[in-house]
Amino acid sequence: MAGLELLSDQGYRLDGRKASELRKVQARMGVFGQADGSAYMEQGNTKALAVVYGPHEVRGSRSKSLHDRAVINCQYSMATFSTAERKRRPHGDRKSSEMSLHLKQTFEAAVLTQLYPRSQIDIYVKILQSDGGNYSACVNAATLALVDAGIPMRDYVCACTAGFAEGTALADLCHAEETGGGTALSLALLPRSQSIALVQMDARLHQDHLDTLMEAAMEACKGLSKVLDSVVRQHLQEVSVLSRD
């Protein structure tokens, strides 16, 4: 795979986007009737499904419950058919527990948990097809599902990745760009207050470039928040039309 040119001399990326362009985003809310909230999200070829239950009483041992706020329980999983090679993915492997933890941290920062003391909110996310930016697709899907469930939040949580190639920051990486070497930074942002819910970067990056990378990721998140907002508004419109009937 060596020799993939992430950004051509003319400024095109592998899939024909320019450096700051996002992949095509499509989303639907309320895809399941039985859950309290649900959403389906496509970011390019990355497809995620999020389901929210709650707030409800704490299940299992009572000791987990908190007296002043709700517990958020996240579970992340990937479908066996989500990647190019079919692979059995047992629950609780290192990668998915890490991802679950990240999701939990992200939403604890965004959901107004103090409104529901001694209760629990469950968020289940599944990646149906993976093509880079799994974390951000999950966060975005879960945000929509939470909105669908009517759980109060501070703001939309929008997540996006950004990478770095040839001295330029690339927004919203696809799988080939993520694996093609270089750095990937995931950012979850509350766009209105511009506060960061979670930021994560695994690879090495020169300190001088960090600001540009963060900037690009923030811009991408803001772009996404507009899309999410329009999805929510459209959904509300549809629902209100239905309920009037």
Binding site: D15, G16, R17, K24, A84
Partner: peptide, 27 residues
């Protein structure tokens, strides 16, 4: 932009043939 898909057949690290779907954005 218009999104289409491009299907590639690549070899995986273990030598198996893998079908890879890549996005392609046209403008």
């Amino acid at each position: 932009m218009i999104k289409t898909e491009k299907v590639l057949h690549l070899k995986s690290s273990r030598g198996r043939k893998v079908r890879v779907v890549r996005e392609l954005y046209l403008r």
